[in-house]
Design a protein around this nucleic acid. Structure first.
Length: 599
RNA sequence: GGGGGCGUAGCUCAAUUGGUUAGAGCGCUGCCCUGUCACGGCAGAGGUUACGGGUUCGAGCCCCGCCGCUCCCGCCA
């Protein structure tokens, strides 16, 4: 017999009906004379009552022998719970099913970890959760995450459908494009010695789709990157990938703001303020020390380059003379910093390339720092004014090359914020979402080691039109038509208007990036050729779908929103992948292993 | 590649900082219990302290190595 209702369906209006429920034994309460079993399915749970007074003994005995997570079907009559036994914690708590028949569909072994109590289950070692992922996913928290993921994917498809986008799949078996992230290679049996590569993004295909006249493309695209993992990085992940023709940056902003508004309404029942604010890359670094700033709190960086140009304090004036900057941040109220915290911040500075971290503690009306004696009254006054220095503050400095100094203080800003928040001196509300567009990125960055320019984003990004003349004369000045969408310090996505003239693309490949013509031809020749046959102006963006869902679910790890994620070493603890290949498989692929032995 | 954290019963944790027989709650097993919903009560089983070395009269604790998980840096056009 099939079930007649799901386990979150029965209400007082069903009283008197004969019903059948299927699901898992969520919990069993055996009182000796009467047994209660909560039957759970993905919708919820319902209490089933086994009363021996009008039940065959064998049914009662089988109920008594059931263990947690066994799969059963029960049949019986819905009835009102007796006075005083209503359970207000669950939606079906007013009724119960008086069991007449029990079908044990599958007995479960004792579980490796308990899943009925959300609080204790949430504390279970992730290693164990990953090994028994199918149990982990039965937990309410995880099931909710997967449902939300589905809801957002559906809302995304509906939104793009309504806006004239076509969902088009692009190949998983592509070829290697060595610029950018390390790729997963797939040997090609039918072409000995040749390899596919799994796409790190559908970038080139979606641009070709524009040449193909699709005009509006989207895909929930699986992407692969063979780089080290993080809480927010998996070797395979999903992007909301879009590309549009005959548009400019503003069209992308509006499209994504519309999408995110739709998603926030669907997932959190909240409205987003649009349009999002725009922040030039330069200003983001200057004020927040990051190109993905968290705008939920202040602690902004201040610039003191001019103030210390002629300072007695040589660390500062020397940095300025060398073309660098002096920047500072006021960690408000952090003068009581512990030695360990100070060391942690110093380490951040050193990791960032600084020699150390200059600081001033403001305690007992005094500025405590060795360097203070070098400061003139004018310098002190300026510091006090711009940083609003008060008793109990901690001032931290970075001096040196602009980007380095900004990024160091940006990281210290985040560190100080977490410390201050833990002390209750700063509030960073997790239910607030500060969206912004970071714009006006430099098109190119310079690699000192290799003495050449490389694309800040990717080589298909269009320069801002008025900057094109500087491509070959002063590449540093060229801004890219690139944009990142950022929320609460998380880079949610990025994209650009693309180069659609083959001539400009050729200049970027060959003259700016110094890719030899034959290599550019081998890697991107088909694109350059495609662009010769009528390429519309186009641009697009990709959003990290897993990060988006993690944010909506309020979890810091995208593993919590992926059904079967990998560990930090890239393994799957449930299936024990990756695994070995036998000799015949390798021979078929013309491969031979040479694994260095560990010394 | 580098740095930090963790690993004790099936699970979550403790073990007075190197000292007798490694404990608790939950789970499990048995018994009792007719209105529970984290049911309750009684009793019981359950340990290569991840693994391999070392120091020591004595190691869960200290040292070295190794494995696994995790966080961060590098990396992620």
């Amino acid at each position: 017999m099939k079930r007649t209702h799901h386990c979150n369906e029965l209400r007082p209006i069903h009283i008197g009906q004969t019903v059948s429920l299927s699901g898992w034994v969520h919990s069993r309460r055996d009182l000796g004379g009467v047994i209660f079993i909560d039957v759970r399915d993905r919708e919820g749970r319902t209490q089933a009552v086994f009363d021996p007074s009008d039940l065959p003994a064998d049914v009662f005995d089988r109920a008594a022998a059931l263990r947690s997570e066994s799969v059963i079907r029960v049949g019986g009559a819905v009835r009102q719970r007796p006075e005083g036994t209503v359970n207000p914690k669950i939606p079906t708590g007013e009724v119960e099913v008086l069991v007449k028949d029990l079908e044990v569909l599958n007995l479960a072994d004792p579980l490796p970890f308990q899943i009925d109590d959300p609080e204790s289950a949430a504390k279970v070692n992730e290693e164990l959760r990953l090994k028994y992922r199918y149990l982990d996913l039965r937990r309410g928290d995880m099931a909710r995450n997967l449902r939300l993921r589905h809801a957002v994917a559906t809302a995304t498809r509906a939104y793009f459908d309504e806006h004239g986008f076509l969902e088009i799949e692009t190949p998983m078996l592509f070829k290697s494009t060595p610029e950018g992230a390390r790729e997963f290679l797939v040997p090609c049996r039918t072409n000995p010695g040749l390899f596919y590569a799994l796409p790190q993004s559908p970038q080139q295909f979606k641009q070709i789709l524009m040449v193909a006249g699709i005009e509006r493309y989207f895909q929930l695209a699986k992407c692969f990157r063979d780089e080290d993992l993080r809480a927010d990085r998996q070797p395979e992940f999903t992007q909301i990938d879009i590309e549009m023709s005959f548009i400019d940056r503003e069209d992308i902003y509006a499209t994504i703001e519309g999408l995110l508004s739709r998603i926030w309404r669907r997932a959190l029942n909240r409205d987003l303020a649009t349009p999002f604010r725009r922040l030039p890359f330069r200003e983001a670094l200057d004020r927040f020390g990051s190109d993905k700033p968290d705008l939920r709190f202040g602690l902004e960086l201040e610039d003191f380059t001019e103030a210390f140009r002629a300072s007695e304090f040589k660390v500062f004036s020397g940095a300025v003379k060398a073309g660098g900057v002096v920047k500072a941040i006021n960690a408000k109220g952090l003068a009581g910093v512990t030695q360990g915290q100070m060391e942690a911040m110093t380490q951040i500075a050193k990791d960032g390339g600084a020699k150390g971290l200059a600081f001033i503690k403001v305690e007992n009306g005094e500025w405590k720092a060795p360097m203070v004696k070098f400061f003139t009254d004018a310098e002190k006054t300026l510091l006090r004014q711009k940083l609003a220095i008060e008793e109990g503050d901690l001032i931290l400095f970075a001096a040196g090359e602009w980007l380095m100094a900004c990024e160091i203080l940006g990281r210290i800003r985040l560190y100080a914020a977490t410390v201050l928040e833990a002390q209750g001196k700063l509030s960073i509300p997790s239910d607030r979402f500060e969206f912004l567009w970071v714009v006006d990125f430099p098109l190119l960055s310079f690699d000192k080691d290799q003495n050449r320019w490389y694309s800040s984003h990717h080589p298909f990004t269009a320069p801002v039109a008025e900057d094109i003349p500087f491509l070959t004369t002063d590449p540093r000045k060229v801004r890219g038509q690139h944009y990142d969408v950022v929320v609460n310090g998380v880079e949610l996505g990025g994209g650009s208007i693309r180069i659609h003239q083959p001539a400009v693309q050729k200049v970027v490949f060959e003259d700016v990036l110094q890719i030899p013509p034959e290599i550019a031809q081998a890697r991107f020749g088909y694109m350059l050729e495609a662009f010769r046959y009528g390429a519309p102006p186009h641009g697009g963006i990709a959003l990290g779908f897993d990060r988006l869902i993690a944010m909506l679910c309020g979890t810091p790890s995208i593993r919590d929103v992926i059904a079967f994620p990998k560990t930090a070493k890239g393994t799957c603890l449930m299936t024990d992948s990756p695994g070995t290949a036998d000799l015949k498989q390798l021979r078929d692929l013309y491969l031979e292993l040479k694994i260095p032995s560990k010394q």
